[in-house]
Design a protein around this nucleic acid. Structure first.
Length: 690
DNA sequence: ACTAATGTCCTTTTT
DNA sequence: GGACATTAGT
């Protein structure tokens, strides 16, 4: 059997991996299984090993459905599983043929797999197979069109902005609850707009259907509608012997409903997660999904992984202390299998500039100690706070990659090029059409509208563009070139289409943007990326569902082989680990975010977020707290710098686990240093007698 | 009809 | 410091 896959695991991990038993035909079967995996307890290893175990025990790899939170996680898990299957087979048949490789094809995010199922069943849903997927920006823009059409934008009282409208819509869909509830619970200041929002969303839905465009939420929603039908649910479900779901604590109502539809009895269902790491409440994630799993699936087995293989005991002490302050107990105390190390440090610095200095110094010093840059990460709550750091890193020639926040795909020029491809793929996509046409000299909304109407009348034949009348005198040449390009793209083979688009776009780029040069580079990179995809459709869909900057695919840094420092939002850092972790801007207002201050639930989510950040570190953890920081609100009140207060998460219990200090680039700055130290002693002296 | 320029409000995290 | 709406100018 698969002793090799099981060999290096501890007892709990092994139980999770081998849960179940072979049936009469030698295929592995199991009932519902919930694995509670604390931070750093080998969750990925265990899940990958379970997949490998299944493959080695009679389950065909194509009969495994693996749902993950990011594409990166899917890739990592399938690769690991495939490797251990290959290794085990080789060991078994020493030297002989190793059999077919185990390729787990049905692995990916809920959204990516939803797109696959929807294209497959498009006829049953009355969708066209070529439907487009809208990213957040596109969705917001489309909502904005409706918002203006309905005249809400010029109300006397503030109507929510397009992005906020999308948040409200998205939350309502994902939580599957009435709009009134969403508003009351999460957007109380907008309850007055209930009826208008309802009308807005109705119009939005109509427009999406008319244009055959789906937003992120539609992918889940339509997948749910799909499996609501008994026959289709059975049809899909019959394709899979096992369904495994990662990061179950961050699934929302809709996702859980889909799983229930596919596996009403929980047969062959494995879910893995950690309630202490639930950090996607803002996206309507329902931590109840994991907490109530045993009730939802009676007879479910629960296995807890509690031995932490990642961090030193000191780092876990701080993390555990943080969670002891949580209002709800998670009954979890991580134990370090690795033993002791250095205490985590809490360092105050004067302001944000000093913070950037300090981080650079520390990173370089650590590198001197032999820790490569890519084993170090700076984590932050919000990407705006990294600007100074990025400048400082640039000055000192320290290479870095940034995950989360920075949006390569959302820059105007990249969106322009993608809009052309999107329009070619789906002529009904008016959002793309308007974007493309308005790039042309002398073409505004009115002319674009005419073009779209002509196109619709011609059933999407781009030749109809030639007949559009009333163009401005100077615009004819550009218009004809565009029309020709679109007609070419419909029939041209995919390789080479990007070149045509670039040739067309080049002059527009120069006319439109001041610094055309760096933008050209971005576009060329996009063209490179396009080569990796087999078709235009695959390129567009996967790009929106898995943007390069978020998953860690190239596109950002010039040379990925070189050593580089990692900058990441805490959210994007989920599931990752580094030797050294610096947590930037650890002060009240950022950690927790001021937005969360009033709401106990949000505050707890912020705490879990901090917990996720702390538990990323293996050997060294540094929290940096600037005493003075920039507050963008309240303009024109003199100095907009404000002395912030210490994070409320730094209770005496937590502080007791930390080593504290102050850092300054100017050696003569004694006062701040003394002030800080005095506070420290007070806290400790009190703590001793509590 | 389209473009450029000015004024006002808000500022998280992501598939 | 940026997004978005409105206004003035071509």
């Amino acid at each position: 059997m698969s002793t090799d896959t099981l060999g290096r695991l501890n007892a709990a991990q092994r139980a999770a991996v081998a849960f179940g038993a072979p049936d009469g035909e030698g295929r592995w079967r199991s009932g519902p299984l919930l694995v509670i995996a604390g931070a750093g307890t080998g969750k990925t290893t265990t899940l990958a090993a379970r997949v490998a175990h299944l493959c080695l025990n009679g389950v065909a790899p194509e009969r495994i459905l693996l749902l993950t939170f990011t594409r990166l996680a899917a890739r990592e898990m399938t690769q690991r599983a495939e490797q251990s299957v290959a290794a085990a087979r080789q060991a078994q048949s020493a030297g002989a043929r190793t059999g077919a490789a185990a390729r787990v094809d049905w692995a990916g995010t809920f959204h990516a797999l939803a797109a696959r199922f929807l294209r497959h069943y498009h006829q049953s849903l009355g969708l066209e197979e070529s439907f487009s997927v809208l990213d957040r920006g596109d969705s917001a823009d489309m909502l904005d069109v409706e918002r203006q059409a309905l005249g809400y934008h010029k109300s006397r009282e503030r109507f929510p902005q397009k992005a906020t409208c999308l948040d409200i819509y998205s939350r309502t869909v994902n939580a599957q609850c009435p709009l009134a509830e969403t508003l009351a619970a999460h957007f109380p200041h907008f309850v007055q707009w209930h009826d208008e929002l309802k009308a807005l969303f109705a119009a939005y839905v109509e427009r999406k259907l008319a244009q055959q465009t789906l937003d992120y939420d539609d992918l889940l929603l339509y997948w749910y509608y799909l499996v609501e039908d008994e026959r289709i649910a059975r049809d899909i479900s019959a394709h899979f012997d096992h369904i495994l779901v990662d990061e179950y604590q961050d699934t929302n109502r809709l996702q859980a409903d889909i799983i229930r539809r596919l596996r009403p009895d929980g047969a062959g269902l494995t879910v893995v997660g950690d309630d202490a790491q639930s950090i996607y409440g803002f996206r309507a994630a329902a931590v109840e999904n994991i907490l109530d799993f045993p009730t939802q699936f009676p007879g479910a087995t629960v296995i807890k992984l509690e031995d932490n293989y990642r961090s030193t005991q000191e780092i876990l002490d701080t993390s555990n202390a943080l969670m002891l302050d949580a209002t709800r107990s998670y009954q979890k105390a991580l134990r370090a299998a690795r033993g002791a190390g250095q205490r985590p440090r809490l360092v105050t610095v004067e302001d944000e500039q000093e913070e950037a200095h300090y981080l650079c110094e520390q990173v370089l010093e650590r590198r001197e100690q032999g820790v490569r840059l890519w084993h170090q990460a700076v984590l932050f709550r919000n990407s705006r706070h990294t600007l100074r750091l990025e400048v400082e890193l640039g000055k000192r020639d320290i290479p870095y990659v940034k995950y989360g926040g920075l949006k390569y795909l959302e820059t105007a020029h990249v969106k322009d090029v993608l809009a052309v491809l999107n329009w070619a793929e789906n002529p009904r996509n008016e959002l793309a059409a308007f974007r493309v046409l308005q790039l042309l000299e002398g073409i505004g909304p009115a002319t674009a509208r005419k073009a779209c109407d002509a196109l619709a009348a011609a059933a999407g034949d781009f030749a109809a563009l030639d007949a559009v009348a009333g163009l401005p005198a100077g615009g004819r040449a550009g218009w004809d070139a565009t029309s020709k390009l679109m007609q070419d793209l419909v029939s041209a083979p995919w390789p080479g289409q990007m070149e045509r688009v670039l040739a067309w776009y080049q002059p527009l780029l120069e006319r439109r943007y001041d610094q055309a040069f760096p933008r050209e580079g971005d576009i060329e990179q996009l063209a490179q990326l396009a080569n990796d995809y087999p078709s235009r459709r695959a390129f567009l869909t996967e790009l929106t569902l898995d943007p390069p900057s978020a998953s860690g695919d190239l596109a950002g840094p010039p040379h990925i082989d070189e050593d580089y420092l990692v900058l990441s939002t805490v959210h994007s850092a989920k599931g990752q680990e580094w030797d050294t972790v610096y947590l930037q801007h650890f002060s009240d207002g950022t950690f927790p975010n001021e937005f969360a201050a009033g709401d106990p639930h949000k505050l707890e989510e912020e705490r879990r977020l901090a917990y996720v950040a702390l538990t990323r570190a293996k050997n060294r953890l540094v929290l940096v707290n600037p005493l003075k920081y920039f507050v963008p609100q309240q303009p024109k009140l003199g100095d907009r710098h404000v002395y912030g207060s210490k994070s409320r998460f730094l209770t005496e219990r937590v502080l007791a686990t930390l080593e504290q200090g102050h850092w300054s680039s100017r050696q003569d700055e004694q006062p701040a240093w003394r002030r800080d130290l005095r506070v420290d002693l007070k806290d400790r002296a009190r703590a001793m007698w509590r």
